[in-house]
């Protein structure tokens, strides 16, 4: 059976339609790129509840906060990179003010492709994770993005949701239930574990197939909530398998890999460990598949790395 492919942001667009229909109090803000982030879908439900701040990301954050402080449920989105333009207003007004604005960053990671490093946001998980009061979700496919969006409607804390531009395999069925803060073990295994997020989850599943041919049993965990991190699932993997590899389309510093490493170190868990991601460097323009090949993000790379840990 051929795998269905869909961009993660398409799922956000469906989530937007669902929550806009469900709750007349939810509003959507974009700087300019609503057609790309997919929150333009809100206009199909009610054109009066979608706003452009203009290409003024800092003001967009302030406007989102003002709307939220006066009782609106607010989703503000742009490319992940451009949210970081407003880092300090996010810190001051959303996080320190503790105002439950939902931020949605699309076009994340090297997977953005041809636009190159100026658009390939590979530091957002790290930045958002560092902020007190901020929560962080990375959707692995369009279904998860849709379900996470529905979850966030009534979530009364600040949260960042990372989506993505290009098509990836759809892993989840329509009846998937998103559980905030609880990792999904997509495949059980007892030799090694890959803990992945976002576009790397489907690649980790491919790696499991490759390793199976070599009689290596791989556990694959979709760590969709980076903050708060599901520590228990990490601890279990460290005790029940011999190695842990993290995989993220992001810098290895400060993101999923760092979050997992913190758990392993603080709990004195002795397990072979490595991180896949960008290592203190920028990628370049190119087709996503070619960039993933060049920068070591393919199933083959992951499988080889796992073998070095065993």
């Amino acid at each position: 059976m051929e795998t269905k492919m869909e961009a993660i942001r398409e799922g956000y667009g469906r989530g937007v339609i669902n929550i806009a229909k469900k709750d007349p109090n939810v509003v959507f803000l974009d700087a300019d790129l609503a057609m790309s982030t997919k929150s333009i879908k809100a206009k199909e439900v009610d054109p009066e509840r979608h706003f452009y701040s203009g290409i003024s990301e800092q003001a967009m954050i302030g406007e989102a906060v003002g709307l939220a402080l006066t009782g609106k449920k607010v989703f503000a989105s742009t490319f992940a990179i451009f949210l970081s333009r407003a880092f300090e207003p996010i810190r001051q007004s959303i996080c320190y003010g503790n105002v439950p604005v939902k931020l949605v960053g699309s076009h994340s990671g090297v997977h953005v492709g041809e636009d190159g490093p100026s658009a390939q946001m590979t530091e957002d998980i790290s930045i958002m994770r560092a902020l007190p009061n901020m929560n962080v979700i990375v959707a692995s496919d369009s279904v998860e993005a849709e379900k996470a969006t529905e979850f966030l409607l009534d979530f009364d804390k600040p949260c960042y949701l990372r989506t993505g531009r290009n098509k990836v395999p759809v892993l989840h069925s329509d009846n998937y239930k998103f559980e905030f803060g609880k990792a999904n073990v997509l495949k059980n295994g007892n030799d090694a574990t890959i803990i992945a997020c976002g576009v790397m989850v489907s690649i980790a599943l491919e790696a499991a197939e490759l390793l199976k041919k070599e009689n290596i049993s791989l556990r694959v965990i979709n760590m969709h909530t980076i903050k708060p991190l599901d520590k228990k699932t990490v601890v279990n993997a460290s005790k029940e398998t011999k190695a842990i590899l993290t995989a993220e389309d992001h810098q290895i510093n400060g993101g999923l890999g760092s979050a997992v490493a913190e758990v392993l170190a603080e709990k004195n868990l002795n397990v072979n460990f490595a991180r896949i991601g960008m290592n203190n460097s920028f990628a370049e323009s190119g087709k996503p598949d070619e960039l993933f090949e060049k920068y070591g993000f393919t199933a083959k790379h992951l499988a080889e790395k796992v073998k070095t840990l065993l």
Partner: peptide
């Protein structure tokens, strides 16, 4: 105190959001 401030530049955007909210409702 309606909102936390101290880093300059943010009040007018937040006020805009509040004013927009009042118009909506």
């Amino acid at each position: 105190i309606e909102m936390s401030f101290g880093s300059l530049g943010q009040g007018l955007a937040i006020g805009s959001g509040m004013a927009l909210s009042a118009k909506l409702d």
